[in-house]
Structure formats: C-alpha cells, structure tokens
Amino acid sequence: MQSPGVIDDYVGRLARKLDFDRSMCRRVCREVQDHLRDAAAADEPADVAAAERRAVANFGDADAVAAQFAIISLAKRSRTMSSASIVGIAAVFIAMKGRVAWYATVAETAGSNLKSIAGIVGSIDRYTFWFSVIAGIGCWLYIGSRPFPSAFDSVFRKQLDRLFLASMVMIAALMTSVFSDGVLTAVRFSDTGFSTGFLVPIFSMAIEIVCVGLLALHIRETARRTARIAALLNA
C-alpha cells in the first residue's frame, strides 16, 4: 500500500527534528514508517488516506516523539564522550611511551644546557598527564554509574554540567601535557640538531596532537548537540 503522502510527511518532519543524530534518525524513521504502514494497513482498507491520517494521529505529535529520542541521543553521546576520553588518553600514553622507548634505544638524552628547563617541563608534563587520566576515568565512572535518563530534567542537566566541567578540565590538562611533550621534543632538537632519526618523535608527537584535537572536537560537538537538544526540548 503506497502512501499518498501523510505518512511520508510525518516521517519527514520527524527526520528534520532528529537530524542532529544521523544514525539514530535513519533507524527511528525506518521503524516509525514501518509502524505507520502496519497501522494503516490494519485499519479501513477502503480509504487509504483516512487510515493513514488515523495512524499518524494515534502515533502522537512528531515534536514530542523527537524530544524523547533527543534525550536518548544525548545520554548515548555523553557516554560515548567519556569512553572516547579514555581511548584518547590511552592513545596519547602509548605515543608518549613509544617516544621515550625510542630515546632509550638510541641512547638520546637532553643536552646539559637545557636540562633544567627539561626537568621543569617534564614535571609539568607528568603531573598534567596523570591529572587528565584521573579526570578522564572520573568522567567515565561518573556517567557510567548514572541510570539511563528518561527525561531532560534537572537531575540529567546537572549530570551533563558536571560531565562537561570534568571533561573541560581533563582536555585542558591533556593539552598542557601534549604541549609540554612538544617543548621537550623541541629542546632535544635544539640540542642535537635535526636528523632523520627525529622523524620517530615527530611522528609520535603528531599522533598525540591528532588524538587531543579529535577529543576536543568530540567534546565541543557534544556540547553543541546538548545546546541544540535543550532548545528542541524547551521549544
């Protein structure tokens, strides 16, 4: 039974409301379309248009349905963000340890002229990195231990606020750590001069920068999505 348009219009409206989460949007629209066609088929077969209008009316307001899915999308995204933070920090750690191992292999040490600077920057690097680890694990444990929300209420808003705050602290600490790594690498360059062997630390630095950049973008995108969804729910 092909729709004269009522079901397609409804699904199209729902899709526009859910376009902030494409994978969810595709799945939901498919399920809703199937449901509405089943409901219309089970109704009066003589008047297709009226059956489809009834199916759509029984399904409920598209805005209200989209709002419910928006909460699920946001909860899912916040959990993904905390998991991505752990993965990002682990990737930075591996790149960092890889570089240190390479320095050990080639018996590379910082020159005596810049040893004091390297010592200070190295401390900053170490403390900020481990601070980001604690903040990242804290985010992951915090959001993972909360029940899946069913409403965009004050409890869920508070959870998101805390998560964003901890995520901002985590990413700031991680950025500082990676920046310190960059300074330490540059110190070694300035001491020994550039050689092809330095491609390894440069490559590991590139991995760290990309990981931190992607993580920062992910957090920013989650914050933007939260703002959009809040606007949708308050509309």
Partner: peptide, 29 residues
C-alpha cells in the same frame, strides 16, 4: 514495535491505549 503495542493493548484489555509514539523511545532507551 507495532506488535509490542498490540500486545500491550491486548493484555490490558484495551485499558492501556497509549499514544503509540511513546513506546518507541522506551524501546530504544
């Protein structure tokens, strides 16, 4: 989803006649 809604209607003797769109977010959640 459609069968779930029908089952709710059948087992409740028609007493639970929800707006059908409320069930899908629950399934996803």
């Amino acid at each position: 989803g459609y069968a779930v809604i029908e089952e709710i209607r059948r087992r409740s003797g028609g007493a639970f006649d929800l707006p059908e769109g409320t069930v899908y977010p629950v399934l996803h959640r």
